[in-house]
Design a protein around this nucleic acid. Structure first.
Length: 487
RNA sequence: GGCGCUAUCGUCUAGGGGUUAGGACGUGAGAUUCUCAAUCUUAAAACACGGGUUCGAUUCCCGUUAGCGCUACCA
């Protein structure tokens, strides 16, 4: 079968009650990878039925995060808040078929019963007392303005089963479930109703979501059955944990995807890292000799992805490994691809390079092996792109504390001014001869010059830096060596 | 508490009835010497515990423990 004709349909259905967080991003990524692998559709649906906590800004942020990670969607975004009539209709149908009933218990009553049940050491579960209310009576009470929710009739006994594509066969005793709410008293659907109705309406074939929904699934399975629909494939993803092995949350620091952009992470690195968090290509990553593969292009990820490779256990988010991916990606980029990302960083700090595009490109190439983040290009590396940069205090202290070194560097600047063929070799030759003449170790001069030239203690080979900067800048900066003072 | 899920180096993981249990990140040591956050070499580091099944379990089964999740008129 031609995969492009596949009817596979997968959705990502975030709730806009927060930014796109790491866990959500991975769910989206796995769903997207799965859809692309199958040649199916990837649908975006915003689950904004919690009006109190949802906001349009959050939707914007989520879409921004998705785009940043390079995930495109084929349909949507659909908003549940605009599909309310659909859920109401479904609830009415369920009411009609006896799968649901009106419950007039107030929140206060419910809370009270819950509290006393907990106190008595029993499980707080709705007892279904309003099931017995006849439809006629319910209609009358509604007529009189009484508020009611619509609850689902969960079978008292038996079990609900389904097959999870990740965890295998699942069985939940119905006695563990309560008659959950379908429609709130204001007519807004609850999560269980809206997901099922939408997944059905949107003809989803696979439901890929976090394992925190595993225990909710039997309720939804019951709903599918009551609606006379067949089940989609459920695939639950193990959760992502913080370093302390509790579920990743704000107190673990960066949890919003965009925070990683702000840290100078490149999207491909983040995506590669995320893809391998809770999923593994297995033997496909093996190489006959040498280490297993860790770096995969998007196309490779799409081609290799399968539900079988999804782990069953939770994974701790490892910042160090992400940082490693970032350096790998930054290093491997073609400078022309890196440039726009760097320009974006420059814009953010309102920096204007004073060098031409070609020079900038070769400079990037020089710096790439040492960059750990995009941020380096808008901070530590600024001395390479223009003449506005600051000195690293520690570097100055370490290599320029001695005033005689500063004097020598200034003098060295004069010498460079007179050089006719300015090359990597000639600059080195001159410096070493100069050091010999002054009776100082070349290394001391080199380290000092590095700081004067770049403001940093760490840089590429000094003479490569000199060539990159060009004769004029080198002369100017060296001649100003005496003005350098540690703050 | 009830229900569910899970358990291989510190972390991400491969593997699977008989292996020197493989790789990556990180960490340690060494090399290089013009710096290191670059590079190269190298080392340490794991099958949670207890019972089965079996000639043989890290692998299969059960239990224990631990962790996580769910248990709302949130999603």
């Amino acid at each position: 079968m031609n995969p492009s004709y596949s009817s596979t349909r997968v959705r990502f259905a975030p709730s806009p009650t927060g930014f796109l967080h790491v866990g959500g991003a991975r769910t989206a990524l796995f769903s997207w990878l799965f859809a692309r692998h199958a040649g199916g559709a990837f649908v975006l649906r915003i689950e904004d039925t919690d009006f109190e906590r949802s906001s349009a800004d959050m939707v914007t942020g989520i879409l921004e995060g998705l785009r940043w990670l390079g995930m495109d969607w084929d349909e949507g975004p659909f908003y549940q808040s605009q599909r309310l009539d659909l859920y109401a209709k479904a609830a009415a149908a369920l009411l009609e078929t006896g799968h649901a009933y009106h419950c007039f218990c107030t929140r206060e009553e419910l809370e009270q019963r819950r509290a006393s049940a907990t106190e008595a050491g029993s499980v707080p579960r709705y007892d279904g007392r309003c099931r017995g209310i006849s439809r006629a009576e319910a209609a009358r009470r509604l007529e009189q303005g009484e508020r009611a929710v619509v609850r689902f009739v969960v079978p008292r006994d038996g079990a609900t089963t389904f097959e999870d594509a990740v965890f295998g066969p699942m069985e939940f005793s119905n006695a563990e479930l309560e008659d959950f709410v379908l429609l709130r008293s204001d007519g807004i659907p609850t999560y269980h109703l809206s997901v099922v109705v939408d997944d059905l309406d949107m003809r989803m074939t696979h439901i890929i979501r976090g394992a925190d929904h595993l225990s909710n699934t039997p309720k939804q399975v019951l709903l599918y059955q009551a609606l006379g629909a067949s089940l989609p494939v459920f695939a639950h993803l193990p959760l992502i944990l913080g370093p302390d092995k509790t579920r990743l949350s704000k107190r673990h620091g960066a949890t919003s995807v965009m925070a990683y952009k702000e840290m100078g992470i490149v999207p491909e690195a983040f995506r590669n890292f995320l893809a391998l968090l809770g999923w593994s290509p297995g033997d496909a990553a093996k190489r006959p000799d040498g280490p297993d593969r860790e770096i995969f292009s998007t196309d490779e990820l799409i081609q290799m992805f399968s539900l079988d490779g999804i782990a069953h256990s939770n994974a701790v988010f490892n910042n160090e490994k992400l940082a490693w991916y970032n350096t790998e990606y930054i290093r491997a980029y073609d400078p022309t691809r890196l440039l726009p990302l760097i320009e974006d960083e420059w814009r953010q700090v309102q920096y204007q390079p004073s060098r031409g595009r070609e020079e900038i490109l070769t400079t990037i190439a020089l710096l790439q092996p040492r960059a750990r983040s995009l941020k380096d290009f808008s901070s530590a590396f600024l001395a390479y792109f223009g003449d506005e940069f600051s000195m690293d205090d520690a570097a100055v202290k370490k290599y320029l504390a001695d005033s005689s070194v500063r004097h020598m560097l200034a003098e060295l600047g004069h010498r460079y001014a007179a050089v006719e063929t300015y090359t990597e070799a000639s600059t080195e030759e001159l410096l070493r001869a100069f050091a010999a003449e002054k009776g100082i170790k070349a290394g001391a001069l080199i380290n000092g010059a590095r700081v004067v030239l770049t403001g940093q203690a760490v840089a590429p080979s000094l003479f490569a830096v000199m060539l990159c900067l060009g004769q004029q800048r080198v002369v100017r900066r060296l001649e100003a060596a005496n003005n350098v003072t540690a703050v």
